[in-house]
Amino acid sequence: MRILHTSDWHIGRSFHGHSTLEALRGVLERLVAQVRENDVDLVLVAGDVFDSAAPSAACYPVLSDTLLALRETGATVVVTSGNHDSAARLGFQSALLRDGILVLTDPAAVGTPVTIDDAAGPVHVYGIPYLEPALVRHVWPGVPMRSQHDALTHAMSLIRADHTARGGRAVVMSHCFAAGVEATPGVEREIRQGSLDVVPVSVFDDLDYVALGHIHGRQTLAERVRYAGAPLHYSFGEQDKPRGSWLVDLDENGFEKAEWLELPVPRRLVTVRGALDDLLTDERFADAEDAWVCAQYTDTTPQIDPMRRLQQRFPHCATVMHTPDAPRVSDERSYAQRVRHARSDAELIDAFLVHVREGEGADERERELIRDVLDDHALTEARS
């Protein structure tokens, strides 16, 4: 059996205020083509289909069109909900979709698989929706449910009991934060509380394949336990991470191999760093002119209207950061203390600049200008 493992579509997420719907639609169209080209039998979408529990109306056609197109390739499609999704909304939509598209959102049903047969026999697919301990305690009364680890351990005990009775090959889908995974800072909205919600990889032992979601970059935690990541870049923290999905083959004995299928990147993400004047003129930044740009300018002091100026060269500049190269000199005195200790008007002005610039006083050119202004003022006073 041939499986395509994808996850974290996040339909409806914006990128620094820009809609990603059309870019995502194009990438998912390519994913559908890959399913067709590779004769995929089963598509697994491991959670966070939507970015919000209440997605806008424009998000639903992207999901419905993609799922229907995947089904038209002949593949069976199985979808689970993640921590961003509304399980109720996804579950409601499942009743409107055709046979061969299954949306698994009910925690109480984790021990009941979707079974698909191939020439070697049955493959049982167990979908685990995101399990928030506080919200699933009522599903399994009497079972300790203090952490996601507790919830997943119990869910896996139900799955193992069912699989033992059925036999055949077993595939599990889960949306979680597995131990050993490398998260992207500022990307995955944390579902951890200290170490309570980190799930050991051993929870998924003895399965033929585990399709994980939640982490936006591809990762292999064990040969049979993998994250596919998101199909689109949603943060500059992800810019160097490839986009794609896992193409997994099962033979009669279980896992055989996994191959990475690249997806296109509609617009590259690039971080440029340098003095603002260099960013605006230096040819070494020319290849970023058609990319999404995170600009880090290193001038000692903040510059006027940097975003507008940068967008004249980089039309898709999405964010600007002031990150000076020179470390700021720490001055623990308060502004009032600096003013009291100023011995001249020049020092008084410098104290003000240190205050408003968060530690950075006048540079040499500015000190010369300040001296000229103060000298002119003193001359005017003397004449009056």
Score class of each variant (00 low, 15 high):
residue 134 A to E: 15
residue 213 G to P: 02
residue 45 V to G: 01
residue 139 V to Y: 08
residue 165 A to I: 10
residue 277 D to Q: 07
residue 278 D to A: 13
residue 144 P to R: 14
residue 65 D to N: 14
residue 147 S to T: 15
residue 194 G to C: 07
residue 262 E to Y: 14
residue 358 E to P: 00
residue 156 M to K: 02
residue 232 L to Q: 06
residue 384 S to P: 04
residue 147 S to N: 07
residue 18 H to W: 11
residue 71 R to F: 06
residue 260 W to C: 12
residue 99 D to F: 00
residue 74 G to A: 11
residue 170 A to N: 06
residue 280 L to S: 07
residue 57 A to G: 04
residue 274 G to C: 09
residue 14 S to Y: 14
residue 153 T to G: 10
residue 148 Q to P: 06
residue 96 L to T: 11
residue 210 V to I: 04
residue 315 P to L: 05
residue 261 L to E: 09
residue 228 A to P: 06
residue 78 V to H: 00
residue 191 I to Y: 01
residue 243 R to M: 06
residue 103 V to M: 04
residue 243 R to N: 00
residue 144 P to V: 09
residue 143 V to S: 06
residue 3 I to P: 00
residue 234 Y to G: 00
residue 172 V to D: 01
residue 143 V to W: 05
residue 1 M to G: 02
residue 317 C to P: 04
residue 80 T to K: 00
residue 56 S to M: 10
residue 20 T to S: 10
residue 232 L to M: 08
residue 80 T to R: 00
residue 185 P to G: 01
residue 103 V to T: 13
residue 284 R to W: 03
residue 190 E to Q: 15
residue 126 Y to W: 11
residue 101 I to K: 00
residue 83 N to M: 06
residue 377 H to R: 15
residue 353 L to P: 04
residue 10 H to F: 12
residue 368 E to C: 09
residue 359 G to R: 03
residue 364 E to G: 01
residue 379 L to N: 15
residue 263 L to W: 01
residue 51 D to M: 10
residue 374 L to H: 06
residue 348 L to H: 11
residue 320 V to G: 02
residue 187 V to K: 07
residue 116 I to A: 05
residue 232 L to S: 03
residue 259 E to V: 14
residue 193 Q to D: 08
residue 266 P to A: 13
residue 258 A to G: 08
residue 59 C to F: 03
residue 300 T to S: 11
residue 237 G to K: 09
residue 328 R to Y: 08
residue 152 L to Y: 09
residue 180 G to P: 13
residue 224 R to C: 03
residue 96 L to C: 07
residue 139 V to H: 05
residue 45 V to A: 03
residue 333 R to S: 10
residue 81 S to V: 02
residue 57 A to F: 08
residue 296 Q to A: 04
residue 72 E to R: 15
residue 269 L to H: 05
residue 134 A to W: 14
residue 188 E to Y: 01
residue 292 W to I: 01
residue 303 Q to W: 01
residue 242 P to Y: 12
residue 373 V to A: 15
residue 321 M to A: 05
residue 52 S to W: 13
residue 65 D to K: 02
residue 257 K to C: 08
residue 286 A to Y: 08
residue 184 T to S: 15
residue 17 G to K: 08
residue 197 D to F: 05
residue 178 A to Q: 02
residue 339 V to W: 06
residue 332 E to T: 14
residue 231 P to E: 05
residue 166 R to M: 13
residue 212 L to Y: 08
residue 182 E to W: 12
residue 363 D to K: 11
residue 183 A to I: 11
residue 26 G to D: 08
residue 23 A to D: 15
